[in-house]
C-alpha cells in the first residue's frame, strides 16, 4: 500500500476517534466546529451537530453551513444560543 494513503487513513482514523472537538465562536454570526462527527438536524432555525462527546445545538435565524477540510464545518447566520446535550437518543 502507498505510504501516503496509509498516512491519510491513519489521520482519518485519529480524527474519528478524537475525544475532543473545538468550537470557535467568532461573533453572533459565525461558529467554527472542528471534528464534527455528524449532522443530526439541519433546519433554518436550528442545527444539531454530533461532536466527540456531546451534541451541539445551535439556535438562530437563517442558518447556513459550509464545510472546510475533513470533519470541519462553519455555521453562518444570526445565532441566538448554543446548547450542549449529552443525550445520545437524538443520534440517528
Amino acid at each position: 500500500m502507498n505510504v501516503n494513503k496509509l498516512a491519510k487513513k491513519f489521520d482519518k482514523l485519529k480524527n474519528t476517534t478524537r475525544q475532543h472537538s473545538f468550537i470557535y465562536i467568532s461573533d453572533d454570526g459565525c461558529i467554527d466546529v472542528e471534528y464534527c462527527h455528524k449532522v443530526l438536524k439541519f433546519e433554518k432555525e436550528q442545527i444539531i451537530l454530533q461532536l466527540a462527546k456531546s451534541n451541539l445545538k445551535i439556535i438562530g435565524l437563517e442558518l447556513s453551513m459550509k464545510n472546510y477540510g475533513f470533519m470541519n464545518v462553519k455555521i453562518f447566520g444570526k445565532i441566538h444560543s448554543i446548547e450542549f446535550d449529552d443525550n445520545k437518543e437524538g443520534i440517528i
Binding site: 455528524k38 449532522v39 439541519f42 447556513s64 459550509k66 475533513f70 470533519m71 440517528i92
Partner: peptide, 17 residues
C-alpha cells in the same frame, strides 16, 4: 442530514448549505 454528514465525512467541499 445524513447526506450532509456523508459529504463532510468524505471531505467533499460543500458551500452555502
Amino acid at each position: 442530514e445524513k447526506l450532509i454528514s456523508s459529504i463532510i465525512e468524505n471531505n467533499v467541499q460543500i458551500y452555502d448549505i
